[in-house]
Nucleic acid binder design. Sequence first.
DNA 1: ATATTTAGAGTAAACGTTTACTCAATTAAA
DNA 2: TTTAATTGAGTAAACGTTTACTCTAAATAT
Lengths: 334, 334
Amino acid sequence: MATIKDVARAANVSIATVSRVLNNKSGFSEDTRKAVEEAIEELGYVPNGVARGLISKRTNTIGLLVPALSSMLVSEMVSGIERIVHEQGSSLIVCHTESNGKKTMQYLQLLLAKQVDGIIFTSGVLLQEYYQMIERSGIPLVLLSTESLHLPVPSVKVNDRLASFHATEYMIQHGHKKIGMISGNRNDMIAGVPRVEGFRMALSSHQIHFEESMIASHRGFSYIDGATAFRKLMTDHPDITAIVAASDDMALGMISEAFKMGIKIPEQVSVIGYDNIPICNVSIPPLTTISQPVAKMGEVAAKMVLDMIHGDEKQESVVFPHEIIERQSVKKMN
Amino acid sequence: MATIKDVARAANVSIATVSRVLNNKSGFSEDTRKAVEEAIEELGYVPNGVARGLISKRTNTIGLLVPALSSMLVSEMVSGIERIVHEQGSSLIVCHTESNGKKTMQYLQLLLAKQVDGIIFTSGVLLQEYYQMIERSGIPLVLLSTESLHLPVPSVKVNDRLASFHATEYMIQHGHKKIGMISGNRNDMIAGVPRVEGFRMALSSHQIHFEESMIASHRGFSYIDGATAFRKLMTDHPDITAIVAASDDMALGMISEAFKMGIKIPEQVSVIGYDNIPICNVSIPPLTTISQPVAKMGEVAAKMVLDMIHGDEKQESVVFPHEIIERQSVKKMN
DNA sequence: ATATTTAGAGTAAACGTTTACTCAATTAAA
DNA sequence: TTTAATTGAGTAAACGTTTACTCTAAATAT
């Protein structure tokens, strides 16, 4: 590959001059610009970003850490982030941590070694261990779809507890009295705990009787988790008429399972999902769900790190409003 | 951030020695190793990959170019690639070209500037222009889910024409005589042309009457494209009993549209998809489809570039077998 | 005992840029 | 005209590593 030296030689100037025209830095005549540009064209020269990075201390790369999530959700999130990041001439390294601490530490090490300019950490708990590592490296960090109560890290998220509260209340407003929840991993601090909490709060604030067994949880937030949780729920509580699901994937799995069990949605059982992934539009029936503006959130998070990189010290955390997208999976009871 | 100099100072040795223990290169005593390792620990030192890259000419980064595809498909593909790439201590930069020539060139420029060690190009036509740029840079390249007839670039793919042929034949074997196709962009050299060809060949080799209007196409390969194409097809040919779809997304959109139109799947119309994305398991009815082992293919493509990077000059192209995954969207006619 | 090998460690060049500094020549000001 | 400012361009240091080369002292061979 051609280097700046080759260009300099071909254009009969010093490398400093080449560098100047490359960066539009003034200090050269129109003639030399021509000569240099021709040489560049001729040689197909592309400046070496690694060398540039070494001296500028900027790699124009930002790192993204995601745990195992619904692939559609991740896609949307990433595409929002990517759009902004690329707009600014940077690129993105995505690391799937699978919520695994050891793996996360490894990736973190990798990102630091790669000298990324910033890090976005999504949808998981920011352990002290992670934070320290990032903190001491001085790399800007923002949290997406998660937050940290004691650590001073800006975040972009939705109020999960409230969203879940509303989802449940939506069922209540539609006349449902026997409402079950299919939760993912109930210990998940992000998508588990708060959503369960919101569910319980809604029931209790409407004085609806609640039993622990009306929340069925399984390992994760996927189709099968939804399917199995639903089956469990229906054997324990055959009189349930509405389900609040902790993710769209779970809701979809549940709908499929209901179909197999001969249960009609929404005629016999209503369901509301969570995430509003694109496929909700074409499920049968189309899925009523809580929408998190994931793509938008990704964009904002990306802008935040970028701003921090450009020197805007502290960013304000933002919590995005959620929204109930009404489709046809919830029946009005009367 | 601490540099190797800081470590050297703290451990009272030269930077060369630090480098040696870092790389296990011999030429130091057990005592100095201890001292150096302590200093590293103490300072939280992480070797600067940029500096390393400058001298080693390796960035441990590989670039991936993908056009706009079903997000689930991309996710699977990427996850296969990522697994392998990360196993080898490298990382991945994903670039969404949206099948846009200008954007692709920009990304290519970016990847070259970043000095990626290798490039995987997916699911699109490798233009001469792209090839030249990569070729002159000397960066190893492999094609995934696409191929180049005249350019000497190894590829990993499935035989689309044959797969589509089989999908169609599957319908014929199930007794269908009036078979329509919903194709995506018919000019798409990868997922358009060959799949349409396979469809036509299957019909003609079974002496089934064919009209152009039995292939409905729309812009792309998404839900709505499937839905609109299906509606068009059914108004033109209300007697169709089977549909071959060019993607699962299209099939899913079509199923949803059929539901709205009061058409029962598979009782009235059967459908076979293409891709076998995870959601096929939980659609209603579960979708019979052509499976491409995308994750596996991604892995193999990744291994290929990696091997090329490590000096294994030319790799053999591989075409993966497809498979028909029988679920419940095709009815047996008698 | 001397000569030779080896282990441990340091010095400095190189990787491909950017940039502070220098300098000559031209232009503008006095 | 002399002086000062400006323009165009080169030289060399720096960024943080790796590595070829060198050197000393200890260990081994003769």
